[in-house]
Write a protein that binds this DNA or RNA. Structure first.
Lengths: 214, 214
DNA sequence: TCAAATAGGGACAAGGTTGTCACTTTTGCG
DNA sequence: CGCAAAAGTGACAACCTTGTCCCTATTTGA
């Protein structure tokens, strides 16, 4: 009687700890009502698939005991998992993507094929939307953001974000315009965004870490 | 006059957004006084190296415009970055590690060589310690934790952590012993750890998500 | 030169997290 | 049965984050 409610169960199969954690967080942000399971090996993944009726499975084909360079091994991983969870939606997230591999995945029912270096924080909900709208979603656009990022320990997430936007401000754009954009982007008052920027600067000043672009 | 204080500047070169963010967080946790810069491309990295005197540089050799499978390209990336930051400590973090590559890295002055799937959250401080103690640190131990993880959105980080420990409790070990371990691990009262566990269970009960191992 | 933009603050309510304390109810089991 | 160990709750202070409101100097630019 413990299960049988309508909460979605999600499985993430990824061998790199940090990436696994990041994927979990992205999923939780995109589907706040879900329970996210995560595992690092094929055997453990199959074990989980046997026990739990997952609605969504995320697969990284580069697992231990399988050669990530062997197209054969990679497809074996994907195929095995897809076969053992026929009712689930499948998303492949890979470090080395190829058009050919996506074709192969599609024929076996995979809905999403995303390159790791095109997967940005906060994008997961868009991916899921596209899958439910068009039936599939491919993300292989290597647009590689050029702007370097700076992170200060003393700042809260909001302050970080506001500062990041401000530092990317193109010449000739007033700060006020950025505040407006920010306000709209995170649906708060533009004045509040301004306040965040000022608090961020104050903190950096106090801790003696004001960057060149102050 | 803006810089010239003793705050450490760190550069992270990694093309996968999520991994880059994760590495930033690990670094911030290990070195709370640092300023962490992060970038995704070689050109941007070289730009940063020219501007800022970094004390520590983290490199993922698999960058855009370089073939991650070509040993030659990988070493070019590493060599170029090391040469342009002679005074910094260098750590290579790679998705596909090899003993041979580590040898090559060592001869050019790289201090750390860590496989991505052996890099666990919270390990960064240990890595840095070992580097400062022994001069180098290699992490290629593929111990692949077997235990599947479960993440519930409703729980706070502490509650997550306590629950994770409890779910890995070997048969025959009393909960109390786990509380003690936890208390020591996160330097709080064992009784508080107990309280966390209980609150976590209460939350899961209320939201109807109690797992099988209740 | 006068208005708009920028810089620098103080204060506050609402809500979540962390770490404690004290108290009640259920179990297990000799 | 009876009692100790284990499990389940309520409350709370300290702290941080978020989003607001309001106030005053200084700089800039049309």
């Amino acid at each position: 009687m413990t299960k049988s409610n309508s909460i979605q169960e999600i499985l993430i199969v990824e061998d790199q700890h940090l990436m696994r954690l990041a994927l979990v967080q992205e999923m939780q942000a995109a589907l706040p009502l879900s329970i996210v399971h995560a595992t690092a090996t094929m055997t453990s993944a199959l074990e989980q698939l046997r026990r739990v009726p997952f609605a969504l499975v995320v697969i990284d084909p580069g697992l231990p005991d399988y050669d990530p360079r062997s197209e054969n091994d990679r497809m074996t991983v994907i195929k095995t998992i897809v076969e053992r969870s026929p009712t689930a939606i499948h998303i492949v997230i890979t470090g080395s993507d190829s058009e050919k591999e996506w074709e192969a995945c599609r024929t076996m029912g995979v809905a999403g094929y995303i390159a790791k270096n095109s997967l940005k924080p906060g994008t997961m909900s868009t991916i899921l939307e596209r899958i439910s709208d068009h039936g599939y979603c491919v993300g292989i656009m290597h647009e590689t953001s050029v702007a370097p990022e700076i992170y200060h320990t003393a700042l809260s997430p909001r302050e970080q974000e506001v500062l990041a936007w401000m530092m990317q401000r193109p010449a000739g754009v007033s700060r006020k315009e950025i505040y407006d954009q920010l306000g709209e982007h995170m649906s708060i008052d533009a004045a509040s965004a301004e306040r965040y920027y000022k608090r961020a600067k104050a903190k950096l000043l106090k801790s003696g870490q004001l960057p060149d672009s102050l």
